[in-house]
Write a protein that binds this DNA or RNA. Structure first.
Lengths: 156, 156
DNA sequence: AGTGAAACGCTAATGGC
DNA sequence: GCCATTAGCGTTTCACT
């Protein structure tokens, strides 16, 4: 909880967000510390959950022709139990890459992946249209995935 | 370009999207192949760019108290050179975690991180308000980051 | 063509000092 | 920060199919 992340920690995190395959030696050189120091820090950063996980980023176009959609969802009533139920259903759907509960006219903003429009249509019918708790949803089709990361800016 | 990814490749990709730290031995066991086969596949998947990179996912709350914003941006005129200029400026901004060029009333949807409202306000003044090419932008504040990944669903 | 098994040297990570 | 041990990696070779 009490995260005293010093400058070295922050530099490590900045680097690992771009490339998690770097060895402790390479990191040591870049941030100006010894390898053992780096490894102790890495262990701590992993154990405390600052580094949540390391994942491979896949090029969507090379796997299947995947389309991306931005979806705004407005619920009928904002009851806590219904909100939670909606959140849980979004968590469970592989096609929903991201889900944000937001202020403003919409209640949720989603990033959704699907193979094609037909596939997307099938998904929305299943998840939104047949859900009486959803007042409306608006879809934007992503033409260009200009930038897509989960990178957190870290000032050191 | 489009390699035929077989079932084993797809399983590997699915697993690595959740945890890129697994050893070739561990992968071999999970997908039912030998270590050498896995390593040959990994090499190919990396060289062809199917696996674009491996990155560490940081818990934003443990680094700084970061707020997340969803921003819709509408440009004044959709001239190709102006679109490209806007895309480039988004690429360059660390605070812009994601940027999608979309169909619909908005031209772009952004996911933006900032320390607080003041910080966000400063950013928008700089990037949007003082840009004559931007007709309007609408901000939603993220209350709950329900789900945030870049995971591409891979059916095998 | 790709697979699985074995073996090579090397680099990197781990835990104790 | 250093050292010794262990683990994992990258590669090659070979027989198989």
């Amino acid at each position: 909880m009490t995260k005293t992340l010093d400058q070295t920690d922050r530099r490590i995190l900045t680097i690992l967000q771009q490339d998690a395959r770097l060895s402790a030696d390479a990191l040591a050189e870049r941030v100006g510390a010894s390898r053992s120091s780096i490894q102790r820090r890495l262990k701590r950063l992993n154990e405390t959950g600052v580094i949540a996980k390391e994942v491979a980023q896949i090029d969507p176009e090379q796997v299947d022709d995947q389309m991306t959609f931005v979806v705004e969802v407005e619920l009928e009533r904002e009851r806590v139990d219904l909100l939670d139920e909606f959140k849980r259903s979004m968590m469970a759907l592989d096609e929903v890459q991201q889900c944000y509960y937001v202020t403003g006219q919409a209640d949720f903003v989603l990033i959704v992946l699907a193979k094609d429009m037909k596939d997307y249509d099938r998904l929305t019918r299943q998840v939104f249209v047949e859900n009486p708790n959803i007042r409306r949803f608006a879809t934007s089709v992503v033409v260009d995935r200009v930038k897509a990361s989960l990178r957190v800016p870290i000032t050191d």
